[in-house]
Simulated scan of single mutants.
Amino acid sequence: MTEFSINVSEMAWPCIIALAWLLGDMGHRWLRLPRISIYALTGFALVNLLPTYLSPLDNHSLVLLANIAFGLILFEFAYRINLRWLSLNPWVAVTGLVESGVTFAAVYFVALWHGSSQLMSLLLAALAMSSSPTAVLRIINEQRSSGQVSERILHLTAINSVLAVFAFKIILMYWVMQTSGDLLQASAQSLHVMMAALASLVAGIVFGILLPIVLSWRGRQAEDATLGFAFAVIVLVSLSYASGLSPVLATLAFGLVARHRRISLGRTQRNFGVLGELLTVVLFVFAASTLAWQQVWAGALLGVVLLVMRLGSKILVTTALAPVSGISLRKGLLSGVGLAPVSVFLLLSLEQPRNFGMVMTEEWFALVAMTLMLEVVGPVLTQLALFAAKETPEEREE
């Protein structure tokens, strides 16, 4: 009987992933819903219905696969970021900075008003700033959209995600410094976090410099660029995962340097082909499966309030600054709506406060609830924004 239970447990995840892929394809074809929304909903529902056989964070192979999938998407996302465009139109960068700051302030004061501690309010505000690079890029690629709104959503997501990561790290280090009785130990922990982040960036830069040299030496850049980048991302993520570095920072740095080195990905190879499609299903099923139903229910009411404040802040800023940044008010509003998806992988950062002994509160559960809602509804809002902006092929033909 025990052997049968173990076999069921080993078969559960492949079956869930296959079912999510099938449901996602059906939902996209019949209802025109984003596939990733259905992947996430399937993962959340089935893991909470069958917790005995599906424990995502205890499955190290699944965690590694999800990190590789995340790395592939982040690499392609960073590859799409045009730093020269930001320098030519600095108002886009200003919009990203202001939007992130206003979102941070709005969530911070709502959390304080609800009775949360100052530290917890700061951490909530930092995580709420970010939009999801994975969801945004996936929707843009899936809809084959292009235009001003698409590009602004990509670049604003890059800005607020990087700011969110650094703000979270700084606030967490501040908390360690304040609560630790041993100042030397706290300083050592903070220095370790900073050095790990720096090493992650260096690793990504080194990969971005060496891989084009290897491809050039082989003399088949046009044919093998995508496959070479895919192998490089897999190795880089595995190296980061094994050595305690940040796969997020490493793959982002890799993508930016690779773009600067002028090695291009073919249009037909977006999402890294079949490999990327498969790992995308794994990623979104896994990400939503880490959210517990009890936590979502406990924080649902405050989660809705935080959701409204977060999305409202982004829409307000992108709309207000639209004219000076060179687009219409309508496109500015749609850019804000497109920033709806929240990065569920930042929620995995919750393990860090727990490791330092921080107690999770109702406000933390509210962030979990908001993440689930925006993991499912956020991609739908991004898709609607692209449709309304007439940047998808179907809308452009009308």
Rank of each mutant, 00 (worst) to 15 (best):
M11D: 07
T103A: 09
A106T: 10
S243V: 11
V281G: 06
I73N: 05
G332S: 11
R218Y: 08
F286S: 03
L350M: 09
D224M: 15
I170K: 06
A242I: 03
Q221C: 11
T103L: 00
L245I: 08
N67S: 14
Q143P: 03
Q118M: 07
V176T: 07
S325E: 02
L49V: 10
R310G: 06
E351D: 11
Q178Y: 06
L245T: 07
A232I: 01
A12I: 08
A203I: 03
L156K: 04
A12F: 15
S349G: 12
P323E: 05
A105G: 05
I263F: 10
L321F: 13
N355L: 15
T392G: 12
V248S: 01
A242S: 10
A250P: 10
T2C: 02
R32E: 10
V274L: 09
N160P: 09
G266Y: 12
A188L: 08
G338R: 03
S131Y: 03
A253N: 03
S121M: 02
L311G: 01
V324N: 00
V136L: 06
T382G: 05
R261H: 10
F272M: 04
N48Y: 03
L119Y: 08
S61V: 10
G71R: 07
R84S: 11
G357Y: 13
F254L: 11
V8M: 02
L278N: 09
L302A: 15
A340L: 00
L23S: 09
L41T: 01
P56H: 13
M309I: 03
V285F: 03
I209Y: 14
V317H: 03
V377N: 00
M129H: 02
I16C: 07
V176G: 11
A126Y: 03
T251C: 15
L19C: 08
T392C: 11
F104P: 00
F70K: 06
N271A: 13
A164L: 00
V110G: 00
E10W: 00
L333P: 07
I153F: 01
L211H: 02
F272D: 04
L123W: 13
W30A: 01
T318G: 09
R330L: 14
A288H: 03
H114L: 04
V98G: 02
F272A: 01
F104K: 02
V281S: 13
L49K: 06
V237I: 04
A369D: 05
I36K: 01
F166C: 09
T42Q: 01
L97A: 13
P51V: 05
G219I: 08
M309P: 05
R259I: 11
H155P: 06
S325M: 15
M309V: 12
L334I: 13
L265D: 11
V162R: 00
A111S: 15
G101D: 12
W217C: 07
G147P: 11
S61D: 14
M370T: 12
V304P: 00
S132R: 06
M11G: 02
I139Y: 14
W297H: 08
G266R: 15
I38R: 04
G336W: 01
A105Q: 09
L384I: 14
W217S: 09
V237H: 04
G101M: 12
E362C: 05
L127S: 04
